[in-house]
Write a protein that binds this DNA or RNA. Sequence first.
DNA 1: ACGTGTGAACCGATTCACAGCA
DNA 2: TGCTGTGAATCGGTTCACACGT
Lengths: 213, 213
Amino acid sequence: MPIDANIHIPQETARRLSLYLRSLKRLIQNKTKVASSEEITRFLNVSSVQFRKDLSYFGEFGRRGIGYDVETLRQEIGKILGTNVVRKIALIGVGKLGFALLGYPGFLELNLQISAAFDNDPEKIGKVLAGIKIEDIRRMKELIINRGIKIAVLSVPADEAQGISEKLAGSGIKAILNFAPVNLSLPGNIYVSNVDMASELESLVYKLKRGRL
Amino acid sequence: MPIDANIHIPQETARRLSLYLRSLKRLIQNKTKVASSEEITRFLNVSSVQFRKDLSYFGEFGRRGIGYDVETLRQEIGKILGTNVVRKIALIGVGKLGFALLGYPGFLELNLQISAAFDNDPEKIGKVLAGIKIEDIRRMKELIINRGIKIAVLSVPADEAQGISEKLAGSGIKAILNFAPVNLSLPGNIYVSNVDMASELESLVYKLKRGRL
DNA sequence: ACGTGTGAACCGATTCACAGCA
DNA sequence: TGCTGTGAATCGGTTCACACGT
């Protein structure tokens, strides 16, 4: 039972925790009180052993021979992930994709709140979309610092992404979810995660081509 | 030099090939004729050894002591990935996200052509967005079969995703890029790849919380 | 008997270390 | 000497096999 914070936790485990949260929420809606690892992972494609192994990095949450108390487990995982606290995020670039992200319900579900949105298009600046006012990107640093935002979602054109991400780094942003199809090179203390839709699809096409032909 | 098609190729390698393509295109734009693995990977975050290892699964493309001919390598990787042929894809669900995907330039760049788009909203059906006519989702099977589409991008609400994906499977679709935050359970001969934006962001937040605090 | 928790074995992928060719 | 290509070592993560508590 390693409540020991120094132990190494696989990053894949961290990624799966939010899937477990979703599954637990569904079970709670179904009024399920107790569930086995098998039931919790039934609609994820994660094995029940994987689930138990993942939890074992954080402690013991189940009862042998019985299963898990769904509600308390949800709270525990929420605490681990930090979804019990609302976190502010900034959205940079309100083009088509950015607009879609403004209304994306998945963020709210994990207590991630878009607290600022920026664009450089004078047509958009000042408008309110999905309840959020679009600010001039020239005020980015100022507002990010003022509002104490540490996380940014970057949905700007590829050729602007590197420059803007450097300004984000200079504004105290610590983590960036990057939708632009370029690799950002930034100081090592900034976490970057890339969502590369075309490349994802391409590798799927490749598999298809190779697997079936 | 394994031109041997039976050899096992890591799926991570397949995913990186499209990154290499992008890098090579940039070099071609810069009029570079020959480049070392070091130069090709400079703006990716992939090591040069990784790059060479990846290529080694498909053959020998470089010249020792010199580097790679940029243009021929681009063609070779294009052939491997199949981006030399235009592939038709279908877009299911033209909400905010779907609309953003309609205009996403990254697909075209990899020769992936959106050849059909579907929605169930009568307001949208018949409209033309980004040059593509939105069709009634009830005609999905018919049109996908007629047009010989094998790849679908699914951007519908979470609670509809499973049902629609089953219909896609029944329409001869072989690969799905799924944006809905649910796991699709489908026959094993259908490739599914998930883009889970909220979960991606959440794992970033977790890292941040853990790394720096 | 049932379902959790976990060290050990295993597997896929990355990195090392160096041989090979220009 | 410079840079590619690759078997061997290593690493991170998953799966196995089983001990443990109820």
